[in-house]
Design a protein around this nucleic acid. Structure first.
Lengths: 344, 344
DNA sequence: TTGTAAGCGTTATCAT
DNA sequence: ATGATAACGCTTACAA
């Protein structure tokens, strides 16, 4: 099993390595016949270009770094999944990383990706403006960076997300229309898009003249391990229940929270949707299998991933100074599906 | 921002590149003082070795390929997650791949990984004996391969899994003890470990003198897109229901099925666990939040991932002919948790 | 203890 | 249309 490389092909076909290289890269300088000979031989002997040598020479890799908070969140999982599908026909490889919403881990991930000489990075930051300076430096001097989902960040680049305030407004409004007024909003603490969601929530209340109650905006700290979040949720709702302030509707502002809250309510012997209606931002396929089936606001992960990749590849190809470019925010359309959990 | 590499460090410190390289690699030949000078300079200028050049020279990469059927299955997701954690302190990078249970996609993934010159591969095969020849060839001539979870495969290497027949026996027995006799087994079609699970299921029935009924072993085809599986499940259970053969207990043999079946039963207006008790092989953290909370048989993903990595790294380091080694199967202990769904 | 030089598999620049 | 040669950044005999 002698290694087959450009040199061995050249020797076998009585050509120079340079010619073989050019033939393989379909250079216009090489005549058709030679190209065919080389390609045939290469195929027959299962030649595979060495990506390391290639990179060493060209300075370019086919690696794309993906930095997300959690893989255990249905939304991010789905996004990565779609990214995998989108990247397959292109000749790029994904290197995914999780930050656990921790800025320090995020920094390590970014350092690692730089060391691997990735061609570009797609990231949903751990926090609003986490690693801002580092990300700016990378985007300006090393490789292009694209933001998605958590797009409240000072890095000036393409940003892909949904219209959080509008979607939250609509969900809240729907609950109001169904006669609920004691509406709580569950959100992640210190996450980029929380602000927008609160804004939409407040606007809806305001437009229907429902007084805003501070205790109905519930922040869960996402850096906690899962068990802490569970306890946090239970505690908050136990307290609301004890003090007779239990909301009769909940908008789940993040993926995992929206599902967990169903369990918490069950433990309190509250029935969904009769006692408490629930709708959540979440991309889980399981929504339909939960009991009751969960109403969801679903982000268009396929579209998001496709667009992220497209924009990133464009930036990789073009060799402009990335500080001079004018970037755009892409706010895509979410899909809200009303199921049993809001069927009042 | 001139690139800092071994050459530039050498020039700055009036040393030869070779000395710098040796100093960075902590070679015994270099005197302490020189090492310190080099290390200090490297740290100050944020030197990062170019992994591509390194590989080109040494023929070794720090890449580990991971091939799994689905990322959307809680078990595989958790496994990958644990693998990420385990690999972090080692200096390796994971390249995960999904096969969708399709042998052809699996082949493509393996080809890709070979082209990337991965140092080793951890795989849960698409099918019993999928890509056997290719995997043998890789393991013998290219890089070590380790199997996990679906370990019914002719490749002779380390295999890591659980004792499927025993675990299924125990779950079935528990349902029998609780008085259920019409017990169905939900399993994936053509997946390596299905056989063992059926065996455990049959043994339990047999030991309690409960007649085995063919129609209670339900195979779901996992290559189908999600919607098809949903419909398949619905159809099967509708039919059982119509013909008055509805089981009063179900052992969910795979991850996703165990969760989906809850939704299917709800649609049939059947109550869990009163009408039908359910227990499933699944690693989802959501089990506790489902309604009712799902009894689960949980695989020890952390232990599995740690062991897989440890064994793989050992094979990578050692340069034996891998055909001559004697391998072992590791059957780890699963954890069964009984919750509401079997609380009869 | 350090330096010199060759080479890993490519591609780019020249020359022919 | 093709060939010769150097170079990418690193490691490793071999020399000193």
């Amino acid at each position: 099993m002698g290694k087959v490389n450009i040199k061995s092909i050249a020797a076998a076909l009585n050509l120079s390595p340079a010619t073989v290289s050019r033939a393989l890269n379909d250079s216009y300088e090489i005549k058709k016949e030679t190209k065919e000979r080389v390609l045939a031989y290469a195929a027959e002997h299962d030649y595979r270009p060495n990506p390391f040598a290639k990179h060493l020479k060209t300075g370019k890799t086919n690696l794309i770094g993906v930095v997300i908070p959690f893989l255990s969140s249905p939304f991010f999982l789905e996004f990565i999944d779609e990214l995998y599908k989108a990247v397959l026909p292109q000749h790029y490889t994904l290197i995914p990383f999780q930050t656990q919403n921790c800025e320090k881990i995020e920094k390590e991930a970014l350092d690692f990706l730089i060391r691997q000489h990735v061609a570009g990075i797609i990231i949903s930051p751990a926090h609003e403006n986490s690693n801002t300076e580092l990300l700016k430096h990378i985007h300006h001097h090393t490789c292009p960076v694209i933001l998605f989902d958590r797009i409240q960040h000072d890095l000036d680049t393409y940003k892909i997300g949904i219209h959080n305030s509008l979607e939250t407004y609509n969900a809240t409004e729907e609950l109001i229309r169904k006669g609920r007024t004691k509406i709580a909003l569950l959100c992640g603490k210190d996450i980029g898009n929380t602000k927008d969601r609160i804004r939409g929530y407040k606007n809806a209340l305001h437009n229907y003249a429902i007084p805003f109650r501070e205790e109905y905006v519930i922040h869960a700290d996402y850096q906690d391990p899962a068990e802490n979040i569970d306890n946090e949720l239970k505690e908050v709702f136990n307290k609301l229940n004890d003090t007779d302030k239990m909301p009769n509707a909940i908008v789940g502002g993040t993926d995992t929270l929206s599902i967990k809250i169903l369990g918490v309510l069950t433990n309190l012997n509250l029935t969904v949707p009769e006692d408490v209606a629930v709708i959540g931002f979440t991309n889980t396929n399981l929504a339909n299998y939960l009991n009751p089936a969960l109403s969801t606001i679903r982000q268009p992960t396929q579209e998001m991933a496709g667009l992220a990749l497209e924009l990133l590849l464009a930036l990789i190809d073009k060799d402009h100074d990335r500080r001079d470019l004018t970037y755009k925010n892409f706010l895509l359309q979410a899909t809200t599906t009303y199921r049993k959990s809001t069927d009042i």
